[in-house]
Amino acid sequence: MRYLLAKGEIVTLQADDAIESLSLVAGAIWLTRSSDTRDYCLHEGTRLAVVRGETLIIEAISPATLTVNCRERRAGVHITTAWPHSSPRTA
């Protein structure tokens, strides 16, 4: 599944059992995850393994194309647009 994010757009992804990883096809994103205390700045060409059941908060630093790689063809992904086109720091 491929998602296009506008600069500043923030989404929350709840990973289920079928999600294997995220790949950043274009652009740059900031990412934090519930299973880790570190923050990540990912750039085009980066792939990040996803832990089953974790929550990811993703903010597009620039316009970005993100692919959710799944183990199954019809994986369940729950994505919530929390703050479209604005940051929680400025909302």
Results as ranks from 00 to 15, higher is better:
M1Y: 07
R2C: 03
R2N: 12
Y3E: 08
Y3T: 09
Y3I: 14
L4S: 13
L4A: 11
L4I: 10
L4N: 10
L5E: 08
L5Y: 07
A6M: 11
K7C: 04
E9M: 14
E9G: 13
I10G: 13
I10Q: 13
T12G: 14
L13G: 01
L13N: 04
L13K: 02
Q14C: 08
Q14E: 15
A15S: 10
D16L: 12
D16I: 06
D16H: 15
A18E: 12
I19E: 12
E20R: 11
S21G: 03
S23M: 11
L24N: 03
V25I: 10
V25C: 06
G27A: 06
G27W: 02
G27P: 01
A28D: 10
I29R: 00
W30A: 06
L31W: 04
R33L: 02
S34C: 02
S35V: 00
D36P: 00
T37K: 01
R38G: 01
R38W: 00
Y40T: 06
Y40K: 04
C41R: 13
C41S: 13
L42N: 07
L42H: 10
L42G: 09
H43V: 12
H43E: 13
E44N: 05
E44P: 00
T46K: 13
T46F: 15
L48F: 12
A49P: 08
A49G: 08
A49S: 13
V50I: 09
V50Y: 00
V50S: 03
V51K: 09
G53C: 02
T55G: 02
T55K: 08
T55F: 03
L56H: 05
I57D: 08
I57N: 04
I57E: 07
I57W: 05
I57L: 08
I58V: 11
I58F: 05
I58R: 04
I58A: 07
A60L: 06
A60K: 04
S62N: 07
S62Y: 06
S62D: 11
P63V: 04
P63S: 08
P63F: 01
A64W: 00
T65W: 03
T65Y: 04
L66G: 06
L66P: 03
T67R: 09
T67N: 11
T67Y: 03
T67Q: 12
N69W: 00
N69I: 05
C70T: 09
C70H: 05
R73H: 08
R73F: 09
R73L: 10
R74P: 08
R74K: 13
R74E: 15
A75G: 10
A75N: 01
G76V: 15
V77T: 10
V77R: 09
V77A: 09
V77N: 08
H78D: 15
I79E: 11
I79M: 15
A82K: 10
A82C: 12
A82S: 14
P84K: 13
T90M: 07
T90F: 10
A91G: 12
A91P: 11
